[in-house]
Lab assay of single mutants.
Amino acid sequence: DYYQTLGLARGASDEEIKRAYRRQALRYHPDKNKEPGAEEKFKEIAEAYDVLSDPRKREIFD
């Protein structure tokens, strides 16, 4: 679930989605986080943001 990936509730505003993405992206960015799995988590976060930030894709997902 993309909302869960970003730590959001369904119905989150565009601003909340953007804030959550930035927070998670900084936390799991491969240059900042060298833990195994961080790069994969970063890709999941980017995919979630891509879907939720686009109104058309978000409507299909919801």
Rank of each mutant, 00 (worst) to 15 (best):
7 G>K: 11
12 A>P: 01
22 R>V: 14
33 N>Y: 08
23 R>F: 13
42 F>L: 07
51 V>R: 06
1 D>G: 04
27 R>Y: 15
28 Y>S: 08
6 L>V: 01
56 R>Q: 08
25 A>S: 08
22 R>W: 10
26 L>V: 12
11 G>W: 03
26 L>A: 09
14 D>W: 10
11 G>E: 08
49 Y>F: 15
6 L>A: 00
51 V>A: 07
6 L>G: 00
38 A>S: 09
22 R>D: 09
29 H>P: 07
14 D>K: 05
34 K>P: 05
20 A>F: 01
25 A>D: 03
52 L>N: 02
53 S>E: 03
18 K>Q: 15
4 Q>E: 02
44 E>R: 12
32 K>M: 02
20 A>T: 04
44 E>D: 12
41 K>G: 04
11 G>D: 07
47 E>Y: 11
2 Y>R: 03
60 I>A: 15
30 P>V: 11
55 P>Y: 07
9 A>N: 09
7 G>I: 01
57 K>G: 05
43 K>L: 02
27 R>Q: 15
25 A>K: 09
54 D>W: 01
54 D>M: 04
51 V>H: 00
5 T>V: 11
52 L>W: 00
55 P>E: 09
61 F>S: 11
56 R>P: 04
53 S>V: 12
15 E>H: 12
35 E>R: 09
50 D>Q: 06
18 K>F: 10
25 A>L: 13
61 F>A: 04
47 E>C: 05
9 A>E: 06
58 R>H: 03
17 I>W: 00
46 A>Q: 04
13 S>P: 10
28 Y>D: 06
52 L>C: 01
34 K>A: 15
17 I>C: 03
8 L>P: 01
37 G>R: 12
50 D>E: 04
23 R>N: 15
33 N>I: 08
26 L>Y: 13
55 P>V: 08
22 R>Y: 10
54 D>G: 05
5 T>E: 06
62 D>F: 06
20 A>S: 09
27 R>I: 13
36 P>N: 14
26 L>E: 15
5 T>D: 11
53 S>I: 08
3 Y>G: 00
3 Y>F: 09
11 G>N: 07
17 I>R: 00
12 A>E: 03
53 S>Q: 06
41 K>V: 09
41 K>Y: 06
33 N>K: 10
12 A>V: 10
7 G>F: 02
2 Y>T: 01
34 K>N: 02
6 L>H: 00
36 P>K: 14
57 K>N: 05
32 K>Y: 02
23 R>Y: 04
21 Y>P: 05
16 E>R: 03
30 P>L: 11
